[in-house]
Simulated scan of single mutants.
Amino acid sequence: MAVASEQRHKMIGDVHLLLTDGQGRVLFGRRANTGYEDGAYHLPSGHLEAGESVVAALVREAKEEIGVTIDPTGVGFAHVMHNSSSGGRVAFFFRVERWEGEPANMEPDKCDDLAWFALDTLPDRMIGYCRDALGHIAGQRQFSTFGW
């Protein structure tokens, strides 16, 4: 059993977007030139910034990465995962079914493909914690841990 530290842990927060089309497919980008999991598909995502809510972060990341505008009132909670990477981080997954604009690759220096996938036919190469979280989402489980 691990011994608790007297020092408080500071945790990184991530947001992940399940942009879902009328056929129930989810949009993924393929990582490129990042130095981490290049060639793997991943949901549009990013870190929380200081003073930002998880919904505001999701709306910002959607605009920055795929050029769509999301109404914060249309964001639906899907899952939260406590991930052991980087000493512990919390990943929030949200589903969005309505947005403005056509999804486009706004970060070609970090992404070389955008593609829609059904949750039961995910791409072969994905980042492990994301695949795990999507399995929990498909099973309607709202919380999970990964890597502990």
Rank of each mutant, 00 (worst) to 15 (best):
V3P: 09
A4Y: 12
S5Y: 05
S5Q: 08
S5K: 04
Q7M: 15
R8D: 09
I12K: 05
V15P: 03
L19H: 02
T20D: 07
D21E: 06
G24P: 03
F28I: 05
G29H: 12
G29W: 06
G29S: 07
R31F: 03
T34P: 03
Y36V: 11
E37K: 14
D38C: 14
H42Q: 13
L43C: 10
L43T: 04
L43Q: 08
P44W: 02
G46N: 06
L48I: 09
L48D: 04
E49L: 08
A50G: 14
A50D: 12
G51T: 01
E52A: 01
A56R: 03
A57Y: 01
A57P: 02
A57F: 03
L58T: 01
V59P: 07
V59F: 07
V59L: 12
R60M: 08
R60V: 10
E64S: 05
E65D: 15
G67D: 07
V68A: 07
V68P: 00
T69A: 11
V75A: 09
G76V: 05
M81W: 03
S84T: 05
S86C: 08
G88F: 00
R89F: 00
F93G: 00
R98W: 10
W99Q: 09
E100S: 13
E100D: 12
G101C: 08
G101T: 05
E102P: 04
P103K: 04
P103R: 02
P103M: 01
N105R: 07
D109M: 10
K110N: 12
D112L: 13
D112M: 07
D113A: 14
L114V: 14
A115Q: 06
L119Y: 04
L122A: 11
D124G: 12
M126L: 04
I127K: 01
I127R: 01
I127D: 08
G128L: 06
R131W: 03
R131K: 15
D132Y: 04
D132F: 03
A133W: 00
L134K: 00
A138W: 14
Q142R: 11
F143V: 05
W148F: 13
